[in-house]
Design a protein around this nucleic acid. Structure first.
Lengths: 210, 210
DNA sequence: ACCTTATCGCAACGAAAATTGCGTGAGGAC
DNA sequence: GTCCTCACGCAATTTTCGTTGCGATAAGGT
């Protein structure tokens, strides 16, 4: 996670994650976050980041190599912090809380950075899909726990992504979500409609329980 | 459309859209399409495009100025050709035909280029949202005609975008749509479930017709 | 066919990004 | 505290992008 690019493994195998290295890493990450919010979610240029972080550009080039991998590194570091996923057992309430949070996050400048960085990484033909799935897995598991909490068997985590996350994402990128609160509620309503529809179809196929 | 950047208007007002100019434009457009499909939908760099098109880089810089405006120009040129939107009156059939086409388009390398280019353009704070809406308007009107043909009053074109286009887009970017055909059918089923849900709620609010 | 001029190729230039070798200082194990 | 070495700062260098002036050629109207 801290070294996303192909780093030559040292013969001794010793790693040095603390002290100055950690400080530099934190400073660079903070600089990336700041510049990204200031610049509307656009991945900042390496020299700019280095100047903001008070670090020599060569250091950033050596450790992260490219803009994309740097932004992805920051985004992955934030994935566990941002957008908590509740699981109280009330499907509508849980989804609504998550979706509200998500829509508001996307609405803020730089809020799309994580998804965009992930999309950029996924486009990379080398370590693309595998790494993407690896990063997404914990989030999908949290979605699964949200669904399990309410006993919703009609939905998969992928459904939640496609019905909530993707419309919120595209809506935000195209500036189509004027009333943010209503938007979130509508997305959740859509999800519940899909659940109802699938449940009805399942009941029609198997009339006496299952 | 052919001159997306601020071109200084000549005093005489004469434009010269034919002959050599048209040839270079076509060559550059083809080069952009080729490189974009080869590179996974990534906007190619200007010198690369120029080399592929057999044109001097300065020419491309003069006419299009930046990668983004060049890609957007190509995308806008293709918007009327790609992804026809049927309107036979059968909502499910129309949506399915459109969605199948869309999913397949997105699945092809470079198929996401248009949406991505549009997203990049929308991110531009200057001419962002207005230009985006302007480009999207004809598509949204086609969606409206699709809905009108079947008398579906519960959906807006924006709903179609959020329920079909955005999941197809995000699914394609993250490589989450293994069985493409099933994916399209599932998206359409979701839309129909939403229609049913909204119709039921509307009937509940207004028991005796409306 | 001629004339005007928009557009292109060419090349030189400038600026900024990205790479690399080397010396030094900080981390971490003993 | 001592030693080893990883990571950083520094600076020189290479690479690449993007701009601009100028001459040549091709478009299009008369």
């Amino acid at each position: 996670m801290s070294d996303p690019h192909d780093r030559e493994i040292q013969a001794t195998g010793t790693v040095r994650p603390g002290g100055r290295t950690a400080r530099t890493r934190a400073a660079v990450h903070d600089a990336v976050r700041e510049l990204m919010t200031e610049n509307g979610g656009e991945p900042p240029e390496i020299p700019e980041v280095a100047a903001r972080a008070g670090v020599h550009p060569a250091t950033v080039y050596r450790r992260w190599r490219t803009r994309e991998s740097l932004v992805l590194d920051v985004a992955v570091s934030d994935v566990n912090v941002a957008s908590p996923i509740p699981a109280t057992g009330d499907l509508r309430a849980d989804l609504l809380a998550y979706t509200r949070n998500l829509v508001e996050t996307f609405d803020r400048p730089g809020g799309l950075a994580f998804v965009r960085a992930l999309a950029t990484a996924a486009r990379d033909t080398r370590s693309g899909p595998e790494r993407t799935q690896e990063i997404l897995r914990p989030r999908l598991e949290l979605f699964q726990r949200l669904l399990d909490a309410s006993g919703t068997t009609e939905l998969t985590p992928l459904d939640v992504v496609l019905l909530v996350l993707s419309p919120a994402y595209l809506g935000a990128t195209f500036g189509m979500l004027q009333p943010v609160g209503e938007h979130a509620e509508q997305l959740v309503d859509n999800v519940l409609d899909v659940v109802a529809g699938r449940r009805a179809r399942a009941a029609a196929r198997e009339p006496r329980d299952g």
